[in-house]
Amino acid sequence: MTAADNAADNSAESVAAKAEPGHLTVLTTTDSAEKAEELARGVIEARLAACAQISAPVTSVYRWQSAIETTQEWQILFKTTTARYEQLEAHLTGAHDYDTPEIIAVPVVRGGAAYLAWVTEETTAP
């Protein structure tokens, strides 16, 4: 390993350390704009995410109860921390009207320092 490789490894470790507690984008879908906004507002009010973005209708094709379904859904992306994920998932599961809601968390591997600090601040209970 060269000195440059060691420096790169050390740099990556310090970036990972700075990223703690870690940040996530969590997504879910629902079948109306009104339900999407209701889920988004509930999560933001509970400080489980700093931001929720609702996308215009998307077409989802999936198998459900042995049938292939095609429906329009609204996708919601939540910006949160790993520390708040469990509570966010519980909130979405309880507030959602789907039997099995899509709840997927994707790690944020890089981001603007000021933005990620804002996400952390907004998801910290007062």
Rank of each mutant, 00 (worst) to 15 (best):
M1V: 08
T2H: 11
T2A: 10
A3S: 13
A4Q: 15
A4I: 14
D5N: 10
A7M: 09
A7K: 12
A8C: 10
A8W: 10
A8N: 11
D9E: 13
N10Y: 04
N10T: 13
N10E: 15
S11L: 14
S11E: 11
A12E: 10
S14Q: 14
V15F: 06
V15N: 06
A16Q: 07
A16E: 10
A17W: 01
K18P: 05
A19L: 09
E20F: 08
E20D: 05
P21Y: 05
H23I: 04
L24K: 02
V26M: 03
L27N: 11
T29M: 08
T30M: 07
T30Q: 12
D31C: 06
A33C: 05
E34P: 03
E34L: 08
E34V: 13
E37M: 11
E37R: 15
E38V: 05
L39Q: 04
L39N: 03
R41P: 02
I44C: 07
I44L: 15
I44G: 07
A46I: 07
A46V: 04
R47F: 03
R47T: 13
R47Y: 12
A49N: 04
A49C: 06
C51S: 00
Q53L: 13
I54L: 08
I54Q: 05
S55K: 09
A56T: 05
A56S: 15
P57C: 05
T59K: 15
T59N: 13
T59D: 13
V61A: 07
V61Y: 11
V61M: 12
V61E: 04
R63M: 13
W64F: 09
S66V: 05
S66Q: 14
S66C: 05
A67Q: 15
I68P: 05
I68S: 03
T71Q: 12
Q72P: 00
E73Q: 04
W74Q: 03
W74N: 01
W74S: 06
Q75E: 14
L77F: 11
F78R: 00
F78M: 01
F78P: 05
F78T: 00
K79V: 07
K79L: 02
K79T: 01
T80C: 06
T81D: 04
T81I: 07
T82Q: 12
T82F: 02
A83Y: 01
R84I: 03
Q87I: 04
L88F: 09
A90I: 03
A90D: 11
H91N: 11
H91Q: 11
H91Y: 15
G94Y: 01
A95Q: 15
H96R: 03
H96S: 15
Y98F: 11
T100F: 03
P101H: 01
I103C: 07
I103P: 00
I103R: 02
I103E: 05
I104G: 02
A105W: 04
V106L: 14
V106H: 08
V106Y: 10
V106R: 01
P107Q: 02
V108M: 02
V109N: 12
G111M: 01
G112E: 13
G112N: 15
A113F: 06
L116D: 04
L116M: 00
A117H: 06
A117F: 00
V119T: 13
V119P: 10
T120K: 14
E121N: 09
E121L: 09
E122W: 12
T124E: 09
T124M: 01
A125L: 14
